[in-house]
Each structure stands twice: as C-alpha cells, then as structure tokens.
Design a protein around this nucleic acid. Structure first.
Lengths: 198, 198
DNA sequence: CTTTCTTTATTGAACGATCAATCAATAAAG
DNA sequence: CTTTATTGATTGATCGTTCAATAAAGAAAG
C-alpha cells in the first residue's frame, strides 16, 4: 500500500499507541514491540520514523505539551477582555482540559515528568512549558497585586493545579475535573480579593 | 567479618544506595549492580536480603513512607492543644520536613509514584499513605467547617502540598521549603477564616 | 586450648531472558 | 526502474537471578 503521506499517519498512530501502552503497562515496561504491535505496524518502523525509542518518547511528550498549550491558548483567546480573573480562569480550565484528562494522558505525563529529571532533552521541554505557565499566571496576578504578592500567588496557583492534577492521576477513580477547576478558581478569587491585609 | 547483626546494616546501606542511585541515574537506569556497588557489596546480596530487585524497591518506598509518617507524627505530638490550625500547620511542616527534602528523596518518591500506578504492591502503600494524610486533614478542618467545606478544603490543602512538593522536585534549584510551608499555611488560614460566605 | 561443626555472610561467574537497533529483502506506487 | 514504505529475523548488549564456593565467627566437644 505504501507510497505517499504515510509518515504523519504513522507518527500519530505510534504516538497514540505509546500513550495507550504507557497507560496499560507503564513506561518502564513499554517495549517498542508492544507499541508497534498496538499501532498495527512492525517494530522496525519506529526507528524509521523516530530514529529510535527515545525519539518516539520525545515526540510523544512534545505532542502532549503541544495539546496542553493549544487548549490553554484556545480558552484565553476566547476571552475578549483583558480581565485578569477571566484569564486566570481560562488558564485553570485549559490545564484541566488537557485535550482529554484521560488516564492515558495523565499517566504518560507523570512518566515523562519522572524521566525528564534525568534526560536533558526531556527536561528542557518540561522546563520551557513550566516557565510559560508560571510567567503567564504571574503576569495576570500582577494586574492586581504587588510583584512579590503576585509571584507568591502564582507559585500557589501553579502548585495547586499540578497537585490537583497529580492526585487525579494517582487515584484510580474518575478524575472530577469540574470540582478541581472550581477549587483552583476559588483560590484565584482568594488571591485577588483578599489582598487588603498586606 | 560476617556473623551477626549484618542484616539491618546491609538493608539500610542498600536502601540508601538505592535512593542515591535513583537520584543520580533515575529508577529506569538503576541496576542492582550500580546499587550494590555503591553500597560496597556484591550484587548477589540484594537477592539474599530483599529477595530481589522488586523487594529492594518496595523496602525503599516503605522506608520513605515511614520517615514521612514519623516526621508528621512527631510535630503533631509536639502540639499539646487540639487546636485545628496548629495541627494543620504541623501536618504541613511535617510534609515539608520529609526527614530531608533532598533531591534524592524527592526523586525517589516521584519515581515510586509513577511506578505505583502499575504495581499493585506499591500502589497499596501509596494509597494507604495518601488516605491517611487526607483524612487527617479533613478531620482537622471539620472542627471549624461544614463537612462539605472541610472535604473541599482538605482536597485543596493536600493538592497544594503535593503540588509544591512536586515542583520542588522538578526544579533543579534548591527547594525553598520555608516559603512553601508559608504558602500552604496561608491557605489553611484562608480556609479557616474566610468561611463566612457559605 | 584446639579441633570440628554449624550458622551467617558474602562473593562473582554463569545463565537465561529481554530488548532496542539494524538491515537485507520485499512490495506497492508512480 | 526508482522511490517510499514496511517487514521481521538477527545481533549485540544488558540485566536480574541463581548457585556453588568461600570465609569468618561462634558453638560444641574433647
């Protein structure tokens, strides 16, 4: 069947298969044979399109990060105003959209977080994404808070988002996204409204 | 030299070597040879004392969990009163003591979090610990809040603790423990004091 | 005291299994 | 006939486990 335009299709199939395999067996027990078998192709094709297993994992992480960035940007652009609260809400909602808050995506993300601490290439990806989230949040808080307060509020919100998300990933039960969003948005309110004491 | 009382010594040496190796190379690239070499013993001794690599990893996780439990319990017992705020502060401080908030312990913990999602034996350990933290927090909040509010506040505080801790583990910079404690304690205050709107 | 026996501690080479990567072969499409 | 796509057996390396051998330290017996 081969000839043209197979590359983007295969790449997507393999990235999806990678997340599904990590979800099922964990990154440590995910072999290229399992992944390729799930994608319906041979093992050799991975080296052909991604240069090897590492390339596939990095591409998978890029894909997840890209989807997160898109889901946040989409909600922020939907805001016509420059209201800080609305933008912070959008950021929170975007982080709990994550295209899909599926167990597969969350487990894959956590696996990459762990791996990124020892693989410079993945660490750079994670850092860039992290910095962007933090500085976006800080920028919005600065509209209503003093620089120092804004930084603290941003640290708190970022931690709250990651913590809620982490706990959603760790518990086998369905992740209650809406209550997590509500909790994080209430934190935003507390930071914006209760700033009179300092 | 052998004869008596080597077991507890070797076990501790190997657990320490495990955390140090995970800190340096990551769990995925930690072999029993590296670990045993760092502990100054042969590879075979691991199977002798822990039954195998899995046993060593489970023992290491138990050790970390035990140290966390101890550091929280110690600070709570230091409280003579039954004041909710003081106990919540103690819980927060205990979680950021973690015996040592070293990179080695944090990386090991994160590695086990990731692994526990696919290994029932580790998952049970993690769940028990998680439940205990959550119910302890909920119990304290219930002294001043309605059940539903207490649960929400507990979810928020637990997430905030985990999130701050996770971000401390992910950033290469030194983890600013005191500011993390301050931030989490301020969250406790906001939950306890600002409950008049509901 | 010293000789034998037993237990505990430890080693490290050998084994078997697993896995990522390679590459020559194949097949379809232009 | 060339290019793109794909296969899957082979290869080479790695790793966890096993196990027979060894060593030291008491214990028992003379």
């Amino acid at each position: 069947m081969p000839k043209v335009g197979m590359e983007p299709i295969r790449r997507q199939q393999l990235i999806d298969a990678t997340m599904a395999t990590i979800d099922e067996a964990g990154l440590a027990d995910s072999t290229i044979m399992q992944i390729s078998r799930r994608a319906g192709v041979s093992a050799g094709i991975i080296s052909h399109y991604f240069g090897g297993k590492d390339g596939l994992l990095e591409a998978t992480m890029r894909h997840i990060l890209s989807e997160l960035g898109t889901s946040v940007a989409r909600r922020r652009q939907a805001q016509s105003s420059s209201d800080a609260r609305a933008h912070l809400y959008a950021i929170v909602e975007g982080n709990f959209d994550r295209s899909q808050v599926s167990q597969a995506v969350m487990k894959t993300w956590l696996a990459f977080w762990t791996t990124s601490m020892h693989k410079p290439s993945l660490q750079r990806l994670q850092r860039v994404n992290d910095r962007r989230l933090y500085s976006n949040i800080t920028y919005q808080f600065r509209k209503h808070l003093m620089p120092e307060q804004a930084r603290t509020a941003a640290r708190g919100l970022a931690a709250l988002i990651d913590g809620l998300w982490l706990r959603g990933a760790l518990t086998p039960e369905k992740f209650d996204t809406s209550s997590a969003v509500l909790l994080a948005c209430r934190y935003v309110d507390e930071q914006l409204d209760g700033s009179s004491t300092a």
